[in-house]
Amino acid sequence: MIEIGRVVVKVAGRDAGKKGVIIGILDDKFVLVDGETRRRKANILHIEPLNQVIKIEKNASHEAVAKALEELGIKARQTKPKPKTQKPKAKRKTPEQLRKLKEEKRKLMDIFKPKKKEEAQEIKETTLEDKAGLAEAKEEKHEHGHKEHKERKEAKPNEKKVPKKTTPKKNE
């Protein structure tokens, strides 16, 4: 039953249930198997011989085994070597490239920065003015507190206008 060219099924291990051919007989216990399985030494007890025999040389190469098994409709195991992907090496940038990068960055900064500055300045100015106005108003209030009622009446309209303007801006 066990001879070179006998088609077998592996019964144990991770190749269990896969077909192969006996390529060589190592001793009274072990044989060499190749095909759907890995090319490996296998215990005779871990093999189930089938009723097919192929003409094959002893220690035939995996390609020869694959060709021989194709006639039986068995696809031999193909271990595709992983496509070598070259890792992108980090190259040092030349000073010219660095300069260009810096210029680009500066351009970007120029595009973005001034707007912010203007906005910020506007806001700051308004706020400062408001603050100043408020502060003045407060001072005026304090001053008026000591002064007579007539002066207050005159000053009040001016005071009222200032806080009304400031409050909505603050909310914004």
Binding site: V9, V11, A12, G13, R14, A16, G17, E48, L50
Partner: peptide, 23 residues
């Protein structure tokens, strides 16, 4: 275990089923 029916059948039963299938 890394074999057909690993974690479901014991190795004996797995062998038995495979042999039965091919015989």
């Amino acid at each position: 275990p890394e074999r057909p029916f690993g974690g479901v059948l014991c190795s004996r039963c797995m062998r038995r089923t495979i042999i039965d299938k091919f015989r």
